[in-house]
Design a protein around this nucleic acid. Sequence first.
RNA 1: GCCGAAGUGGCGGAAUGGCAGACGCGGCGGUCUCAAAAACCGUUGGGGGGCAACCCCCGUGCGGGUUCGACCCCCGCCUUCGGCACCA
Length: 734
Amino acid sequence: NAAIRGGLHPKDWTDANIVRMRGQLKSMGAMFDWTREVDTSSPEYFRWTQWWFQQLFKMGLAYRAAAAANWCPSCQTVLANEQVVNGTCERCDSLVVQRYMEQWFLKTTAYAEELLHNEDLDWPEHVKTMQRNWIGRSEGAEVSFALESPATAEGASEPTDEVRVFTTRPDTLHGVTFMVLAPEHPLVRALTSGAQRAAVEAYVDAASHATEIERQSTEREKTGVFTGSYCVNRLTGRRVPIWIADYVLATYGTGAVMAVPAHDARDFEFAGKYGLDIEVVIAPADWDGQPLAAAYTEPGTLVHSGRFDGMPSTEAKAAIPRYLEDQGWGKASIVYRLRDWLVSRQRYWGAPIPMIYCETDGIVPVPEDQLPVMLPYDVEFKPTGESPLARSEDFVNVACPTCGKPAHRETDTMDTFMCSSWYFMRYPDARNASMPLSREAAEAWLPVSQYTGGAEHATMHLLYARFFYKVARDAGLVPGDEPFTRYFAQGQILGPDGRRMSKSRGNVVAPDGQVERWGTDTFRAYLMFLGPWEQGGPYDVDGIVGVWRWLSRVWSLVTEPPTLVDAPDSTEARELRGLAHRTLAKATEDLERYRMNTVISGLMELTNALQRTRDAGAADRAAWNEAIELLTLMMAPECPHLAEEVWERTGHGYSVHQQAWPTPDPALLRRETVEIPVQVDGKVRERLVVGAEASEAEVRAQAEAMPRVAELLAGREVARVVYVPGRLLNLVLR
RNA sequence: GCCGAAGUGGCGGAAUGGCAGACGCGGCGGUCUCAAAAACCGUUGGGGGGCAACCCCCGUGCGGGUUCGACCCCCGCCUUCGGCACCA
């Protein structure tokens, strides 16, 4: 889309961006091993993305199925969700419809259970929670309801005599009074009676214009239409009307739900609105046999449930599915909210899907020695009504690898998430021309010990990458089970408009201007100083001059030092060394937690103290040199260029970046005296300087001797004394 | 709507049960300068009192709670941001 807007070919635009961003990364002093650079849009890389696709196909993890895509009838093209605005096309305002076509899926659900278990990963808890909720495991039962007369589902050849539903409440099965299918359910057309046809078709059409987010809104009023057909609850023999409603999604469970209005709030509301029966089957403890005023969703005792009467509902959740299984009417079942991954894109700019369709041999992978399937450069990539590659006859027409007869290539390309799901597995062996990576390289480097990326990737990229890694493991390519043992979710620097910087929004601000004006070290340190790394915020360079001033002060300390004398036991010398080591202790701790902003502020404080010492005229030689040396070492990660220069000027050899991170001296961390607040009834009234190890009695006596404290205590009785050594004293009055 | 996160001076933020506002920007006052910029020094949450050293009250989105003590923990709300499967 950016290329179309800019009137450029996507490849030229991408290549230009790569050159530019490579330069930006280097200008910012980012240190990478460039021999391992990977470009996911290069044939050397996407050859292996295609190899992965075939690997998944051979492992039975890739399959074709019909799936909906947003379709603009006027532009004749598939739209991304982002391009659909209020149900209409962002380009031409036409009403967007759902168009069904055969597309490729990857079986992410095959790994749902394993992906759910992320508790041992050293990742932020909120990201792990989001993933678990996204995968959304639900335990329940799949239950078969008998159709009154057989019906043929869309796309099926044989009629069926049942509708299957998934429910998390099998204990309420005897209270089913209606059934609801998703409007897209394949049986809808067959089950619709003549009298209901117009209403059902209108409803299905309306539902195709609503987004999934709208349909799942719990505030939106539930609507639905009766199909005119019935099915039978095998357990009770009850005749159950079949409805359709858009709050039921075709993509979850079986795309059909049984409705128990007495024990589900949504069903209760729906039954009330359409005058459907409400049958109580779980009795609350104090139930008087009267109709319920609202759905009762808590545990209780089964009633009107035949052989299960009197059973606690918690027990019935297991007993009823067991019974269903014995009868052949259903079974206990677990479903996941997670869906299989649709990877087909009807777009030009992507890795071609390396498959061939032959009338005789069906779906045939392109032979491995013919990979990569190249993406032709000279193709009309603007929207035309079909996949752009389908218009290139040279691309489409191919001999079947099996029988040699004319066949045609798949013309869809892969979701770019495919390319980004395994790139980190390529870094260990980026130039390997015979396989995606060797086992030796994988053993040496994987899994990734520290991964970093925005939390916006929590449920998609990070989950796809975990899926890919497990597939790679099962293919014997990589060690371990997880790609990223440790992960840090950085915040995002937003555009000046406060929204995410994005090529499609056009609000991207490049760092070049600031690097040019202030230099790399100032810009780097400023980015770190802006705020907590996991937080992010709007891009705003107003404060950058403060970092520039700081670095200028550091420079002046080195070029214009004080007169150095030998006075190692002076108070000033001891205080300077103590401050330097306390700063080091804090920086060490902060760096481990990636709190770069407080590392910088600590270094600024140390610099300010050094400047005060310098301005006083003279300093102890050893203490001064030690403080400057520690400051330089602590600055090396943030301001690598200035740190190197200072390192050399203070008489050290090359290089500061080859020094070990220093260790604080514990003896210097202890303060001899501390100032603690004296509180009376929780309010600070005085401050007291005491020895760090002073006892409660000692401190209390000193505090009570202070005139203001004595005044506040006059005539009152101290009921309680709270003393936290080194922190505070609190005198609580009666 | 659902899932996740965040709300602190004019601004970015610090403090994760113990002195709210470290560090920095900006503002104000000053030094230097013919002047301006830059640089440097001082000052800076709001309100009130005192000639003054200082003192008092209020204050971390809103309402409640726990605690000697709450920005921090608990309950309920509000707002903003991220994600919601074709932006990546």
